[in-house]
Design a protein around this nucleic acid. Structure first.
Length: 615
RNA sequence: GGCUGCGUAGCUCAACUGGAUAGAGCACUUGACUACGAAUCAAGAGGUUUCAGGUUCGAAUCCUGACGCGGUCACCA
């Protein structure tokens, strides 16, 4: 069975040659799918052909249409509206497609054989629990990795855990001072939240200390000396906070000393650091598991933060970098419309970007992948431009396969999430909330009443998570999105549960069908409009996965699943399946339901959304 | 200020990468369960695609400018 787009395109080309002469070989042909308000499945746009044919677009369309209908058995009919030639595909073609290939499980997935690609996502800091922003990152990274896998890539999922630095030291210090030896289990708090609470405790004590200090003589002198812009004292102190932390604060000094002790490898500090990080990892793992994601390898910043220095030397030898008099190393990217960028401090210690150079190399050594995808927010667009440009100049073997999967921040209806204002939406709380909502909603229904409590609980989990995930993934990655927690628990309309419901229907009808002679399906002769619509959508699925993967855009898959579910619901409403006139129709429609169910399950699976058998 | 991204129905988002009368959902109004599952379907209303020019058969999409909102411009991460 030949693929339609290619078939039609060569058909059109032949028609052009036949009608308008040999020049037609060079002509570009625009073929698109027909808008649903018109009859047909494929459309040829004939405006661009006027130069070649020297006729009006409508005439050209008529002539090509007639020719195609004559020469291609796959073209049943055509109609012309202005410069658009709409082609109606023969029922036989659609029916053969469905009965031969559409039912297979795994339809649309490519077996493999394409590049290996490393996908990084999540990459949290270990001083605080995960929040809504991480959820978008994780869902985007995960679904993109699944999408790449479905289109034949060999995918390695990694995260880099930022487990060192001043932030975790704040938590450690606060626990040491105010914790009285408390542990998460006894406190009855999820372990990562437990550690996060000490981070907050540190900030509170720090604020108190800062406020008290502002009344001191030392503070008065500083205000006198440094407030050059004549700000109000309150405004001045607002801007001075960081300097205070670094220069005047006792707590700040203590935290920085702890970081130094950690860097020296002082056993007691390292032990405490290990202990608290282990708590956080434990908490993260729980959250990841609930989200249904996992990693092939974790990188820890504590093990990678010194990497990259050897690449500096190589870059200096190559003349890609240059050393300043004070010993610092820079790269000049002004000819690539970027700036001059420091990549090594004067004291020889590395920077964020040095580390990233090193981990890129490390990953290549670990996996030999020539493609790497970084799922990181768009606030770091510039950083990745610089990083990739440097790797290119260093002529790293994977330099051409780097991609920054950039995504917009998540805002609340009230504006940005601000940890200082306590508006951060916690990941675990949010999941609890959507599942609770799904539970409430299930109480109003009888459809699962004969199932056990465990089964019902599983279903409710799937529904709640589907609502949350779909809500986030359906938005294109680049777009900054507004997330309304109230909407995320919607179970109707353009939502995850709506798609699940379509799937459940395809399963329900099969349960009810009992034993049927399915071979009768081949005897079905004429398609209903809703059936044509469904089959042509199914037909487009493999191409859609390819487009989505090429664009690193899982939202395309989400929109497709919604569209397919919507058409299934309409089909369900319009035609009777088990009550159809002939056994052929019953069998054919059962096949169709199965095919739609398979594709829905496959597509939603790529998004990390599970399909229940009932709901 | 330099660079950069965005601006589409009251709200949240689409628009096959330049194609037809700019589409969905939510909210609002109305109709459909004795039917294979109503977490559904159908209908109504809702728009000068921020504005002004330009490119062409054709622009939400490309170019120029204005306005508005982000991001980023560290020997921080």
């Amino acid at each position: 069975m030949k693929a339609l787009p290619e078939l039609l395109e060569t058909g059109v080309r032949d028609a052009l040659r036949h009608l308008y002469g040999p020049d037609a070989s060079e002509q570009e042909i625009t073929l698109q799918s027909t808008r649903k308000e018109f009859e047909g499945e494929f459309t040829v746009v004939t405006f661009p052909l006027t130069r070649l044919a020297k006729k009006k677009p409508e005439v050209i369309a008529e002539e090509i249409g007639a020719r195609l209908k004559e020469t291609l058995e796959e073209v049943k009919d055509f109609n012309v509206i202005k410069g658009f030639l709409n082609l109606v595909i023969a029922d036989r073609y659609w029916m053969d497609f469905l009965l031969q290939s559409g039912v297979r499980e795994g339809f649309g997935h490519v077996a493999g054989g394409k590049d290996k690609v490393v996908v990084e996502f999540a990459s949290p800091n270990t001083n605080k629990p995960l929040h809504l922003g991480h959820i978008r990152n994780i869902l985007l990274g995960w679904s993109t990795s699944k999408l790449l896998e479905a289109t034949g890539h060999d995918v390695v999922r990694v995260q880099i855990i930022n487990n060192r630095g001043i932030a975790i030291c704040k938590s450690m210090l606060a626990w040491q001072r105010y914790g009285n030896g408390a542990v998460p289990e006894k406190a009855g708090v999820k372990a990562d939240h437990f550690v996060g609470d000490y981070y907050i405790k540190f900030e509170q004590h720090f604020q108190e200390e800062y406020k008290a200090w502002q009344k001191s003589d030392e503070a008065a002198a500083i205000l006198e000396e440094k407030n050059k812009k004549d700000l109000s004292p309150a405004d001045f102190w607002k801007g001075y906070k960081n300097t205070y932390f670094n220069e005047n604060s006792d707590l700040g000094r203590a935290a920085k000393e702890m970081l130094l002790r950690w860097e020296d490898g002082e056993p007691e500090t390292v032990a405490l650091w290990n202990r608290m990080n282990d708590w956080v990892y434990e908490g993260f793992d729980e959250t990841y598991e609930r989200l249904g994601v996992s990693f092939d390898k974790n990188y820890y910043e504590s093990e990678t933060y010194l990497l990259g220095k050897d690449m500096i030397d190589a870059g200096l030898d190559k003349g890609v970098f240059y050393r300043k008099e004070d010993g610092s190393v820079f790269v000049d990217l002004t000819d690539a419309k970027l700036d001059q960028k420091a990549i090594l401090r004067a004291d020889g210690t590395s920077l964020y970007i040095t580390q990233d150079l090193g981990t890129a190399r490390l990953r290549y050594d670990d996996f030999g992948a020539k493609r790497m995808v970084y799922t990181v927010g768009d606030e770091q667009n510039y950083h990745f431009q610089v990083l990739f440009e440097i790797l290119k100049r260093l002529e790293e073997p994977y330099a051409d396969g780097l991609f920054h999967l950039s995504y917009g921040m998540v805002d609340l209806p009230t504006g940005r999430m601000k940890s200082r204002e306590g508006t951060v939406v916690d990941a675990d709380d949010l999941m609890d909330e959507v599942i609770q909502e799904a539970y409430q909603s299930s109480l109003e229904r009888e459809s699962t009443s004969e199932l056990s409590d465990t089964e019902r609980r599983e279903i409710i989990q799937k529904i709640g998570m589907a609502a949350l995930k779909f809500q986030i993934i359906k938005v294109g990655p680049q777009k900054r999105m507004i997330f309304d927690p109230k909407e995320s628990v919607d179970l109707q309309g353009q939502t995850g549960p709506y798609v699940q419901n379509a799937y459940v229907r395809t399963r329900a009808v099969w349960r009810k069908a009992g034993q049927r002679d399915l071979s009768q399906a081949a005897g079905y002769t004429q398609l209903e409009p809703a059936e044509r619509e469904l089959i042509s959508l199914l037909y487009a699925y493999p191409g859609l996965l390819n487009d989505a993967a090429a664009n690193y855009d899982p939202s395309m898959v989400a929109m497709y699943c919604y569209e397919l579910a919507k058409n299934l619901h309409k089909f369900w409403h319009d035609v009777s399946i088990l009550g159809a006139d002939t056994e052929a129709a019953v069998a054919f429609r059962l096949y169709l339901c199965q095919a739609v169910g398979n594709v829905l399950k496959s597509g939603m699976g790529i998004l990390g959304i599970e399909m229940p058998e009932r709901m």
